[in-house]
Amino acid sequence: MLVITCPYCQEAREEEEFSYAGEAYIARPAVPEEVDDATWGDYVFHRKNPRGWHWEQWQHVAGCRKVFAVKRHTVSYEIAGSWTLADGKALYEEEQA
């Protein structure tokens, strides 16, 4: 059972209160009309699916209902932290750079 901290409620709660909402920070092509089918298919369907640290979205469905970012290890299931989407994105981009 994962124990996740909601950055809005500022409380650590069990996974059952939350709903997994997939990989975080997938960039939508800026001008969808101009990209080819392969790029669009990549955006819609293809995922990083890493074996290791993963930035993902969770929604606090049984609480404040807000969506936020969590950095979690996909083998050990260790959670490095959770952030609002905006705060997390700054960290995420720093890591990617």
Partner: peptide
């Protein structure tokens, strides 16, 4: 289990 995982284990609920 709803989340992504390579751990060959899931959650008890």
């Amino acid at each position: 289990d709803s989340y992504l995982g390579y751990g060959q284990r899931g959650s008890p609920h």
